[in-house]
Design a protein around this nucleic acid. Structure first.
Lengths: 207, 207
DNA sequence: GTTGTTGTTGGCACGGCGCCAATAGTGCCC
DNA sequence: GGGCACTATTGGCGCCGTGCCAACAACAAC
């Protein structure tokens, strides 16, 4: 009987093992779809040990999210002094690099692992986007429709976020949100869309 | 025994009753926190009836979300023809009106009813935002720090959405996302922030 | 080898969900 | 108006996932 049925590990070691397994499972499936039994089996431990180390399943999940959400931004000092537009360009490039390198885990934090829900949300979002495009006279550009949609959809995220700041968090006033959305949308229509596809600007010309 | 123990209703009527109760409960608590027992009790019916009408709890939830997500955009024809900037301004105003009137249910669709998760996400988001602000030389403006943060946070939603379009949906190229984010951020720094608080633009002047 | 410590296990109890056979309102027909 | 078929609605069974806790066993100290 030289082989014990299980090994006794230092406190932090076991903890890290379990956390790693949980991280993997939670990133490939949704919270509800992953059971504590799954995590325990994956980690090769008894289910009760999860509760001993992390309290509740929810706590373990939050621990995972906390780590995943904190990662992405590290080196800041790489952007030098200089005129505003140069610094902005550098910052954006740096951000995209970080995003590309790190895979899409940050993007999907908190959402994205619920296909059924996402489908419905995406559908409603597309409807809104189509109406806005129609409103702006973009419905004629069928050639780049998909890509224009994607841009406007991104703008929709800005609108939702700003609306949240205004109505839920109450950190911005309506006037401020209005200014933000108007200027941003104007920029998108005037400077982004025409240059993004090498196509002509929408029918009514610019301001 | 003139009073029957329960009434027999037309198919759609019961369905609507249950749906209404589910809608109320799901908007005030999160999906996991609301049990089918709660909904059934609220609607004054047996729990099994939910399954009979909607199949599974998830299906009922999706039904609720589908309705909540479809509501916000109705009247489109109110915006007339005209130069681009006028139409954009009108569209934004109309959007804000719809948002204000409809309460914050659309904003919170899909997320927002999970305080513990939101807190962690918001914390990580704020860290990222602070670094970006520092990068852009906005860290000196302590007077409007909260509001500047809120604006940048909204921009973060745009960045996340655009990143999603690029890496997950593959509807945009990296170059297109870069253009979108650069121009938008430039606009925010140059045209939005200075005018939103009646304060001076950041230290390095504009482009 | 014995003993104390504590990381780890296994199982119990509770609650939520999907399912289905039985029940009882309700309109129809005579 | 009384029986009858129809089906909306009920109530309970079985399963699964989670939190909890007492017992157990690996390991170190002596």
């Amino acid at each position: 009987m030289a082989e014990p049925r299980w090994r006794r590990l230092g406190a932090d070691q076991r903890r890290e093992e379990i956390l790693a397994c949980a991280q993997r499972l939670f990133t490939e499936r949704s919270y509800a779809e992953v059971s504590t039994t799954d995590i325990a089996r994956e980690a090769g431990v008894a289910r009760g040990l999860l509760n001993h180390y992390f309290g509740t399943k929810r706590d373990l999940y939050l621990e995972v999210v906390r780590e995943a959400a904190t990662v992405p931004l590290v080196a800041v000092e790489s952007i030098p002094e200089g005129p505003l537009d140069e610094r902005i360009a550098a910052a954006v490039v740096w951000f995209l690099d970080a995003l590309q390198e790190q895979g899409s885990s940050w993007i999907n934090v908190g959402v994205g692992r619920e296909p059924d829900l996402d489908r419905i949300l995406a559908r409603a979002e597309n409807d809104s986007v189509d109406r806005l495009m129609q409103l702006l006279g973009l419905d004629t550009e069928i050639e780049h429709r998909k890509q224009v949609r994607a841009v406007i959809r991104s703008f929709g995220q800005l609108a939702r976020g700003a609306g949240r700041e205004w109505l839920v968090r109450k950190a911005l006033t309506r006037a401020q949100v209005q200014l933000l959305l108007t200027e941003s949308l104007l920029t998108i229509m005037r400077d982004v869309l025409p240059n993004a596809f090498g196509t002509s600007p929408p029918r009514s010309g610019q301001a």
